[in-house]
Design a protein around this nucleic acid. Structure first.
Length: 548
RNA sequence: GCGCCCAUAGCUCAGCUGGAUAGAGCAGCAGCCUUCUAAGCUGCGGGUCGCAGGUUCGAAUCCUGCUGGGCGCGCCA
């Protein structure tokens, strides 16, 4: 945004000093005070190819610039060869004018226009409740999907599940045994590694109460299938309800089973076989991954005839690519890390460009309650569900805490901090900034004042005003970068900074009761900040309260 | 044994794809409300960027090797 003021002048200057045409004109925002508002490292980047001292190059670039550029207060060479620009207040005022013209779309981008993307996340099988640890996948996936949408991509949110596997059979069996016990037919033995949660009995009770007569006519096999189906429906209802609380809803629920009924699994095996990548060994069917540069071959169809997860996963990715998505994003926990290379190798062997597939692997989560690690496990009675977590800390905090750290690092979720409704909690810091702005706007409205986009901005010259406008000007590029790099946490950091600049502005620059021009201009700036905060929080799936 | 991830202030973490004196928040200390929300602002202290080499004008960032922690390595998903 700011760089557009000097961009073309710099390019001309580079041409004048005979710099290679392909040099990247990179900008950065100096953190340190005294280094201006914007700087470029292009002189350092040229040092090698020009075989010159970077400082000397920087000076010759500066010398090749026009003596004065509109909006630029000063240009200087500093450090190892930085070229630093300081802009005039009027440059910031015109930046603000541009930002205002974006209206409610502030922060959105068109870089993804015409590109379709499929984001697959959550994807837990319907065998029970989502547990607290699932929260990271939910929040990261949904925030990324939001980021893609804000960048103009055509986004499909997809949930991949399997209602026909081993685990589902155990779920059905667990429910069936509980049901038979209810009905006084207690001869059935509860499966060794069955599901022990209370919900199993709940589902069984429900069946006993409402479907008793149907159940009585069934064979054991029929009953098992019936219980499995009832369990699936019940669990999916529970999962959907949890997701809804977090503001998450998927466009497509893709059933792995459909890959079999549509013949897509078989077709995938055939295609791999025709490439000479499939062979039989000890009754099983193997995929020759070593021919694809992988460390070892893997079984894709067990000697029992059942495929392993690898095969449908390859068929699934092939299907997604064939559905025409330009970009496929998979959100996985670190425990799935080993499967990805196999799937990608298989898909690539089938002739697809795997650079279209982008995999986000997030590390595991540890929950801390006053310094102690909270243990939870899925099948024992001590399970800590995502619903429990939401009940304890609220949906906003859940969404924010799960995305506020880089996905590649282990996440420590401090429950005590999350529960605090005070200044230690980063979520409230952001929401408070938004609520504070809304409060001023309400007061202004009582006086008949409204933020206007055509108001005179000349009076905005205070340091705190300039800093705030500069921060606002970085909103869109922050969204683009968070999306492009698949790093949603950078948006959290940005909003923290933005809120900080607003609070400083609020502290230093009184709005209501000042001279009319000042009042109007500052009100417009506050309102612009409100839109940015609101949009940023919306992308994160966090509410932006107007009052706190 | 092998693969991937991580290691930065007392604690939790950023660090914009290699740049300036490595930054926030929290915790600690000291200030700021007769005026728009003090859930806020300002200031201070706090560092061998795990260790050892290498690459170059320049490394927390890239390469190699260690150390320590996490997740995986199945005819489970």
């Amino acid at each position: 945004m700011l760089h557009t003021i000097v961009d073309s002048f710099l390019r001309d200057a580079l041409q004048r000093i005979n710099a290679p045409a392909d040099v990247v004109l990179a900008f950065e925002y100096p953190r340190q005070e005294g280094f201006g508002h914007l700087s470029t490292t292009v002189a350092m980047a040229l040092a090698r190819s020009l075989r010159q001292n970077p400082r000397a190059i920087a000076q010759s670039i500066v010398d090749a610039l026009p003596p004065s550029i509109e909006g630029v207060e000063s240009v200087s060479v500093a450090g190892a060869g930085f070229i630093n620009f300081t802009f005039t207040p009027s440059a910031f005022q015109s930046v603000m004018r541009t930002l205002q013209s974006r209206g409610d779309e502030l922060g959105s981008s068109t870089i993804g226009r015409g590109t379709s993307v499929n984001v697959e996340y959550v994807s837990a099988n319907p065998t029970g409740f989502l547990h607290a640890g699932h929260g990271r996948n939910c929040a990261v996936g949904d925030t990324l999907a939001n980021l893609y949408r804000w960048c103009g991509y055509d986004v499909t949110r997809e949930y991949y599940f399997n209602n026909a596997g081993n685990q589902m059979n155990k779920l059905g069996e667990s429910i069936m045994v509980r049901l038979l016990q209810r009905l006084g037919q207690g001869d059935a033995v509860f499966p060794e590694d069955g599901y022990h949660g209370e919900y199993i009995s709940t589902i069984a009770d429900q069946i006993a109460q409402t479907q008793r007569d149907v159940v009585d006519t069934m064979t054991r096999d029929e009953l098992h299938a019936f219980c499995r189906k009832q369990g699936e429906l019940w669990c999916f209802d529970a999962i959907r309800a949890t997701l809804k609380t977090l503001g998450i809803s998927h466009d497509v629920f893709f059933n792995e089973d459909s890959l079999y009924t549509d013949g897509k699994v078989e077709a995938t095996v055939a295609a791999l076989r025709s490439l000479g990548l499939v062979y039989e060994h000890e009754g099983a069917t193997w995929l020759a991954l070593t021919k694809l540069g992988q460390p070892q071959d893997k079984v894709i169809i067990k000697s029992s005839g059942e495929p392993t997860y690898r095969l449908p996963d390859i068929a699934y990715h092939r299907d997604k690519l064939e559905r025409g998505f330009d970009v496929i994003v998979d959100i996985f926990g670190a425990d799935h890390i080993a499967t990805i290379p196999d799937v990608l190798a298989g898909v690539q062997a089938l002739g697809f460009d795997t650079s279209r597939v982008r995999v986000v692997i997030h590390q595991m989560v540890t929950f801390l309650e006053n310094g102690e690690i909270v243990k939870f496990s899925k099948r024992s009675g001590t399970s800590f569900t995502l619903d429990d977590l939401i009940d304890e800390v609220g949906a906003d905090v859940v969404r924010f805490f799960f995305v506020m750290r880089a996905v590649g690092t282990h996440l420590e979720f401090d429950l005590a901090l999350a529960k605090e409704e005070g200044d230690r909690n980063p979520v409230f810091y952001l929401q408070y900034a938004h609520a504070r702005i809304c409060s001023i706007l309400r007061r202004a409205a009582e006086k008949g004042l409204r933020p206007a986009i055509d108001t005179n901005l000349d009076v905005l010259t205070h340091r705190a005003e300039i800093d705030l406008i500069l921060a606002l000007s970085r909103f869109q590029e922050t969204v683009e970068r968070a999306c492009g790099n698949l790093e949603p946490h950078t948006l959290c950091d940005y909003l923290r900074d933005l809120a900080g600049y607003y609070h400083a502005f609020y502290h230093d620059c009184r709005i209501l009761g000042e001279a009319v021009e000042v009042e109007q201009a500052r009100l417009a700036l506050a309102d612009l900040t409100r839109v940015a905060m609101k949009n940023g929080l919306t992308i994160l799936g966090v509410s932006a309260p107007e009052q706190m």
